[in-house]
Amino acid sequence: MNITPLVWIITILVTIAFFVYEFFAHVRKPHEPTVGESARWSAFYIGLALLFGVGIGMVSGWEFGGEYFAGYLTEKALSIDNLFVFLIVMAGFAVPKIYQQKVLMIGIVIALIMRGAFIAVGATLIENFSWIFYLFGALLLVLAYRQAFVSGDHNPADGRFMRFVRRILPVSDEYDGDRLTVVKAGRRFVTPMFLVIIAIGFVDLIFAVDSIPAIYGLTEEAYIVFTANAFALMGLRQLYFLIGGLLERLVYLAQGLAVILAFIGVKLVLHAMHVNELPFINGGEPMLWAPEIPIWFSLVFIGATIAVATVASLAKTRRDDRRAALDSSSAGTPADTTPRTDKEPS
C-alpha cells in the first residue's frame, strides 16, 4: 500500500474527531445508556468498519482488504475480551453505573494511544529486523497457552500493582461524582475513580502486548494495523452496555482467542522461516519450503473460530441454566428467573 503522510494525517484527525464527538455527545453528561442507544451506535460503528474494509479492497486490492478484515475480526475479539476485564475492574471498584461510560471512554482512548505507540515500534522493528517474526510468533504461542490454561479469576482491582498504587497515593474512601481528586481537611486525595483509571490503563498495556503482535501476523501494513485497531475500539463503549450480560455467557471466549493467537503465532514462525536471515538457523538462508498461509485462509479460520466459540459458549450456558432450573425444581425450590441487572463477574 502507498499511504501518503496526508492520508495518515486525515485518518488520525478523523479518528480523534470521532472520540471527541463521543465524549461531548454521550459521555460528558453522566448517564447509563439505554439498550436502544447502545444498539444503534454499535451497529453504526460496525457498519462503518465494514464499509472501510470494502473501500480498502476496492482502492488497494482485495489482498489488503482481506488483511484488514482478518485484523479487524481479531482485534474486535481481543477487545471484547478486554471489555470483560473492564467489567471485572469496575465491579471490583464498585463504579456507579452512571459513571461507567466515562471510565470506558478514558480506557478506550488510553488503549488506542498505547496501541498506536506499539504499532509505530512494531513497524520499525519489522522493517529493520526480519527475525522479529520469530520473537512475535513465540510470544503469541506463550500468550495463547496462558489464555487457554492460566486462570484469570484474580481481581485486577486488588492485584499487586493496585496495592502498590494505594500505598503511595492518599486515597479517599468514597466517590465524589466523577471527580479524580478531592480536598479534605486541607489535604488533596485521589478518589476511587482515579484508581479505576490507573487500573484500566494497566490492563490496556497488557492487552496491547497481545494485540499488536497478533495483527502484525496478519499484515505488515502499519496503516491497516492502525485502522483495524481504531475501528475495533470505536463503539466498544456502546457494545459494553449492549452485551454486558452476554459477556458472562461467553465462557469459551478465552479458549477461542487462544486458538486464534496460536494460529497467528504459527503463521508468524512459518513466515520468519520463509524470510530467515539468522546465521545460526539454516546457515542464514531462507527456508523456502516453509508454507506461507494465505490471508483468505486466515480470515476464514479466525471467523470460524469466533463463531464456534460463541455458539459453544451460549449452548453450554443454556444447558447449565436448564440443569440449574431442574435441580432447583426437584429440590422443591422455585428457580430464580429474575434477570440479573448488576454486572458482577461470576
Rank of each mutant, 00 (worst) to 15 (best):
K76G: 11
A123L: 09
K184M: 09
T181A: 05
Y134A: 00
A117E: 11
L125K: 09
A70M: 07
Q101E: 05
G177S: 04
E174G: 06
K184F: 06
S151T: 08
F84V: 15
V142P: 07
A138G: 05
G152A: 12
I126D: 10
I106K: 07
Y175W: 07
L125C: 11
L169S: 00
D176G: 13
Q101P: 04
F149T: 10
Y134C: 02
R146K: 13
L140D: 00
L112E: 02
Q100M: 10
L125N: 11
V85S: 06
Y175L: 08
P170V: 02
V109R: 03
K76V: 14
R166V: 01
F161Y: 11
I80E: 01
I132L: 00
R146D: 06
F86G: 00
L104R: 00
N128K: 14
I98Y: 14
V165C: 10
R179P: 09
A120D: 06
N128H: 14
L83E: 02
S172Q: 02
A94M: 13
I108C: 00
H154G: 12
Y68E: 08
F161N: 13
D153P: 07
V183R: 10
R163M: 10
V121C: 01
I126C: 08
L180M: 14
R167E: 08
I110S: 08
G122S: 04
F161V: 15
I119Y: 01
I88M: 03
V183Q: 09
S79D: 08
S151N: 03
S172I: 06
A111T: 04
K184L: 11
V183K: 11
A148E: 02
A138T: 01
E127Y: 12
P170I: 00
G152C: 05
N155L: 03
Y72K: 06
L73D: 05
F84C: 12
F149I: 07
F136Q: 00
A117C: 12
T181F: 10
N128Q: 15
I126S: 14
L180R: 15
I110W: 09
R179A: 12
V142N: 03
L78F: 09
L135T: 02
K97C: 11
L169H: 02
D81Q: 12
N82S: 11
V95W: 05
L112P: 03
Q101T: 03
V142I: 12
V142W: 07
D176S: 13
L83I: 01
M105F: 15
A70C: 08
D158S: 13
F69A: 05
R167M: 08
V121I: 08
D178R: 12
L141P: 03
L87V: 07
I126M: 15
I98T: 13
V165T: 06
K97L: 14
M162C: 04
I98G: 10
L104F: 05
L135D: 03
Y68I: 09
E75T: 14
N82R: 12
V150L: 13
D173N: 12
V183C: 11
F118L: 12
Y134H: 03
R160A: 14
I98M: 15
W131T: 15
V142G: 08
S79N: 08
